[in-house]
Computed example of a mutant assay.
Amino acid sequence: MIFSETGIKGSYVADLKKIEDSRGFFGRAFCTTEFSELGITSDIKQANLSYTSKKGTIRGMHFQKHPYEEMKAIRCIRGSIFDVVLDLRPESETFKRWFGIKLSAENYKMLIIPEGCAHGFQTLENDIEVFYLVSKEFSPSHDAGVRFDDPAFQIHWPLKVSEISDKDKSFKDFPL
């Protein structure tokens, strides 16, 4: 894999290092050694799949509270999304900053979300699927989030929002 820093401490974009021939290509999609060398948690506890039918839908911004902070490694495997990492770690030099990138089935990019950061995405077309690896099992009692349009962060979503869950709309303003 080829890792690039995002500007959010501990967050990376991983591109496939393709080995190509007449049949197509091969590339490593995940490697504990490569993750560990960068200080990224590589202890995977869950693999999740998300399907969204409608373009412009936002899912997020989600995170889990202590002690269930989780690393996520996100890939869009059908269609395309605008994927966002938001730093919620008060001790971080990138606290309250965000980074967004287009992930698609065509570009094979993966966004790595470190522990203590929120994650969300907006669908850029209909019928998308997102696959992600997670370092902790989901804990409903530690589930949390911040609002996608919270003025404390000023995330610039590329499309008008077509759908968002009541839960995701109900998150309170982040304390300034």
Rank of each mutant, 00 (worst) to 15 (best):
E93V: 14
F82G: 06
S104Q: 05
M110F: 02
R78L: 11
G79I: 04
L86Y: 06
T94V: 13
R78F: 13
I101Q: 06
N107Y: 02
E91V: 13
P114L: 07
L103D: 01
R75I: 03
S104W: 01
G100F: 05
I101H: 01
S104T: 04
R78E: 06
R89N: 01
A73G: 11
L103N: 13
V85A: 10
N107C: 02
P114E: 02
S104V: 15
F95P: 14
I101F: 10
F99M: 07
E93F: 12
I113C: 02
M110E: 09
V85M: 09
E91N: 07
I101P: 03
R89S: 03
R75A: 07
K96Q: 12
C76S: 12
K96M: 13
D83L: 03
A105S: 15
I113T: 03
R75T: 13
L88V: 15
R78Q: 09
R97F: 10
K109T: 05
I81A: 01
C76F: 03
D83F: 00
I77K: 08
F95A: 14
I81L: 10
R97E: 03
N107W: 03
L103S: 10
I81P: 05
A105E: 12
K109P: 14
E106V: 10
E91L: 07
D87P: 03
L88P: 09
I101V: 15
R97D: 04
V84R: 01
K102V: 12
I113A: 02
N107K: 05
G100W: 14
S92W: 05
I113P: 00
R78W: 06
I101A: 14
V84F: 12
A73F: 08
L88T: 11
K102E: 15
T94M: 15
G79V: 11
E93N: 13
I74A: 02
G100A: 15
M110C: 14
A73Q: 15
I74C: 04
I113Y: 00
F99Q: 04
I77Y: 00
T94I: 07
L103T: 11
S92E: 10
K96F: 04
I113G: 05
R97Y: 10
I112E: 06
Y108M: 15
P114W: 02
L111A: 12
W98M: 09
S92V: 13
A73K: 05
V85H: 01
Y108V: 13
V84Y: 00
I81K: 07
K109L: 04
Y108W: 03
K102H: 06
I101T: 02
D83N: 08
P90Y: 06
G79K: 03
R75N: 01
P114Y: 00
I112C: 08
R89P: 00
K102L: 14
I77H: 02
E106N: 10
R78T: 08
V84G: 08
I74F: 02
I81F: 09
M110R: 11
I112P: 07
L88Y: 01
P114H: 00
R75K: 08
R97V: 06
L111T: 00
A105C: 12
